[in-house]
């Protein structure tokens, strides 16, 4: 039997992402039921200042070094592999974000562990670990049972309560030197997004269009709607990739994370990468003609219909009301 569970902290722009605390929470629960210690690893320039917030873990490994400018999977895996081997760690949790992406499969290839992506749930029962993953853009779930309870799991943000990962206790901190092994990839610079005409993260009403809007011209009905109810128009990735709206309007994993009072999703299927950006909106209303669209699993109100049958009529009625 191996001796531990490790959570790889995920952070961007000097902020620990919520999913790190989600992982610490579920990690603690698993560690207690499996009677194993919980470790965490924080890598990055200034990482030591985050470590005190990781008291839910028994030990926190810290690699703080000016030379570490950005998350490169190869570097993270060099560090992880050493810690995992030296401490006989069997379970590793990594964030299912763009920052941590690549770490799981690369570590799996190096250690010959199994890697399971898109995890929504992890349950330890009768000496076995079961991982539930969300596949096919959220339309199908899969269950994988690991009899040896050994593996690497990437956790979809929003799967577990972040509160369960926070503690006021102070963890034992272990400083680890930078491996200095040389990397095959060289980080050059960050490219900040161009400031858009509106900052969608500050809007309290968002009307969001997805591929179901059909064409660039049709986006005008979303414009018309926000003219009446206020707010701004934003979109899912395909709309941005087509060049129909600027990158500053993209919601999701690679785009913006928003928490408006109202998020109206028009023709958006609700892939996990999109949900990541808007799941915490106070009120989500979705219009989609597919009754099985995963967006209906996060929306409070759903309308299974064609956008064209609903939105123009809604606009007319709102105009009448004024």
């Amino acid at each position: 039997m191996s001796k531990g569970i490790l959570v790889l902290a995920d952070h961007t722009k000097e902020v620990i992402t919520d999913v790190s605390y989600e992982m610490l929470g579920i990690g603690r629960k698993l560690a207690d039921s499996m009677n194993q210690p919980l470790y965490s690893l924080i890598i990055g320039d200034g990482a030591e200042k985050f470590a005190s917030g990781f008291g839910i873990a028994d030990k926190v490994f810290v690699v703080a070094d000016k030379k570490i400018e950005i998350a490169i999977p190869e570097l993270i895996v060099q560090i992880l592999k050493k810690i995992v081997t030296e401490n006989d760690i069997s379970l590793i949790l990594v964030a299912g974000t763009n920052i941590s992406s690549g770490v799981g499969p690369l570590l799996a290839a190096k250690l010959d562990y199994r890697f399971i992506h898109f995890c929504k749930n992890l349950i330890y029962e009768n000496g076995e670990l079961m991982a539930t993953s969300q596949l096919f853009g959220g339309k199908i779930f899969s269950e994988t049972v690991l009899n040896d309870c050994k593996g690497i799991f990437s956790i979809l943000p929003g799967s577990f309560p972040a509160e369960a990962g926070k503690a006021s206790r102070f963890p034992e901190i272990i400083d680890i030197p930078h491996p200095d092994d040389g990397l095959k990839i060289k980080f050059k610079a960050f490219i900040e997004p161009e400031a858009g005409d509106v900052d969608v993260t500050k809007e309290s009403i968002l009307v969001s269009v997805g591929r179901g809007i059909g064409s660039s011209d049709n986006i005008s009905i979303a414009d018309e709607l926000v003219e009446i109810i206020g707010g701004a128009v934003c979109a899912s990735r395909p709309i941005i990739d087509q060049g129909w709206l600027p990158l500053s309007r993209q919601i999701g994993k690679s785009g913006m994370i928003v928490k408006p009072k109202l998020y109206m999703a028009l023709g958006i299927s609700g892939a996990p990468e999109h949900i990541e950006g808007m799941k915490d909106a106070e009120l989500i209303i979705a219009v989609n003609k597919d009754s099985a669209a995963p967006i209906f699993n996060v929306a409070q109100y759903g309308i299974c219909a064609d956008i064209d049958d609903i939105v123009p009529m809604l606009i007319d009625k709102l105009k009448e009301r004024k």
Binding site: T12, K13, I70, I72, T97, N98, I99, K184, I185, K186, F187, K188, A189, F190, I191, E192, P193, L247, S248, Q250, K253, S254, G255, M256, I257
Partner: peptide, 11 residues
């Protein structure tokens, strides 16, 4: 990365 942020790498 996230929030429209990208990193440039040389390979």
């Amino acid at each position: 990365f996230a929030g429209g942020l990208r990193g440039e790498f040389e390979i």
